[in-house]
């Protein structure tokens, strides 16, 4: 059982994450795209309280290693919804939140354990160099009800359980 659960939880940039019992987890699929010039997408996920209020960034994956005149942070604005909803006021790198871009595959990210109970919309946005941009929204209730939705081009399934 142990070996079945653990590999599904990737290591985030900050290092180890322990998903507390009962905390929700979101799984995000980055689809394989058949193009000659492929760059791994920038992806961000955040929670918006359904009744308004400040958004909370759950994760953001970008080119953390690229420096120089055009550092990887330069293109974070291409995640235009996330940028407007909170990315622009987030200091990066952010412990437990920011990390490197990911290859196509399915990744499990725990939602913050200290989320106040209530209704939220989880949003996941992906933007790819020489590619497209897509936003997927999944309404959820904490604690309890998860949900699922799927993108068409830049994102696959986004599932919260």
């Amino acid at each position: 059982m142990k070996s079945k659960v653990l590999p599904a939880v990737p290591l985030l940039a900050a290092g180890t994450i322990a998903s507390p019992a009962g905390a929700a987890t979101v799984s995000v699929t980055i689809p394989r795209v058949a193009v000659a010039e492929y760059h791994k997408p920038y992806v961000a996920g955040w929670l918006e309280p359904a009744d308004g209020g400040a958004a909370r960034t759950v994760f953001v994956w970008y080119d953390i290693k690229k420096g120089g005149n055009e550092p990887g942070t330069k293109w974070l604005v291409d995640l235009r919804s996330w940028w407007r909803k909170g990315g622009r006021s987030l200091r990066l790198p952010a412990d437990g939140v920011s990390g490197a871009t990911r290859a196509p595959g399915t990744y499990q990210i725990p939602l913050p354990a200290n989320l106040p109970a209530g209704q939220y919309v989880l949003k996941v946005e992906a933007a790819r160099e020489s590619g497209g941009r897509e936003l997927v929204s999944v309404p959820i209730t904490i604690p309890g009800k998860g949900g699922s939705s799927s993108g068409k081009a830049e994102l696959g399934a986004v599932t919260i359980r």
């Binding site: 005149n69 055009e70 550092p71 942070t73 330069k74 293109w75 974070l76 604005v77 940028w83």
Partner: peptide, 10 residues
């Protein structure tokens, strides 16, 4: 060219 920038190197 744009009105929204990330960082202060642009």
């Amino acid at each position: 060219s744009t009105t929204i920038l990330s960082g202060t190197g642009n």
